[in-house]
Design a protein around this nucleic acid. Structure first.
Lengths: 142, 142
DNA sequence: CTTGACCCTCTATCTAGGTATAGGGTGTAG
DNA sequence: CTACACCCTATACCTAGATAGAGGGTCAAG
């Protein structure tokens, strides 16, 4: 696939793919004689994965790291396991925070409906829990 | 509290608070005679909330919007409900995506451990589900 | 054999979210 | 009354993640 096809299919523009190549997150499989980029079919899905992951607060570096797990799969098993475990922890922490926000929003909606707005500052408190600090601390230590 | 105290307590630097004031996400309660910013005690928690929310892929604009729910609570009930419902949907979509990534990582770790690496590209497929596209579509419509 | 839609590289520019620095005022402890 | 740690404003600069030309090559259709 040529760069324009991939870009269109994935809903990004061509320059973005040039950019992804430059930063090393997504390289074309090869180049044609005339220098045209040639992408394989997984490219579109990779781009979609990147876009989803960005919405979840992952940087391109982190995403590259996640994508690397896919490629390394066959070769260095314990390495992949260790890396995957690190990311898994991060993902779980994010889920926990989002669950806290979710719960808070639900309470907010419910309180509103029932006109019993006693809770003082639900959104501020929803992430004040100790477990979120732990996640932060571990990030700093790395 | 003066700006330096707040910054230190929240683990950000003073310029960041100046920036937050400029963009309107966090304003000091008042100014002293000599023009010193005076923050109230909730400022530190607000900053922590902002930092957590950023890690989850929310922009400062979105976070400001979330924080507004807290303030509006007493006044315009159905308005708050509608806004909260929109954010709730977004949060749920994020959780669903993270759950998919989580599951994939767990499978990856498990497959590795058991040496049964048949799955072709788990991370690429994990967000290919139709429900994630729906979430995107709805974002575009707004 | 030219026209139009592609592709290339290179460089500049933009936005979000800060971070740094210059030049100057404040306030309190010694 | 001065030294030092703080505060102020204004402006410049930085990184990530794109986005937009300029200037030129490629290729398939007519």
């Amino acid at each position: 696939m040529k760069v324009g096809e991939v870009a269109k299919a994935a809903g990004v523009n061509v320059q973005t793919l040039h950019y992804y190549e430059r930063v090393g997150i997504l390289k074309p499989r090869s180049r044609s004689n005339s220098g045209y980029r040639d992408y394989d079919n997984s490219a579109v899905r990779i781009i979609q994965f990147i876009k989803h992951a960005q919405e979840l607060g992952f940087s391109l570096d982190e995403i590259q790291d996640l994508l690397a797990l896919r490629a390394d799969k066959k070769s260095k098993c314990e390495n992949v396991q260790r890396q995957a475990a690190v990311h898994l922890k991060d993902v779980k922490a994010k889920i926990a925070k989002l669950e806290a926000i979710k719960k808070t929003l639900e309470v907010l909606i419910e309180d509103c409906r029932g006109r019993k707005t006693e809770a003082e500052c639900p959104l501020l408190d929803c992430l004040a829990d100790e477990r979120f600090r732990i996640a932060e601390g571990e990030k700093d230590e790395s």
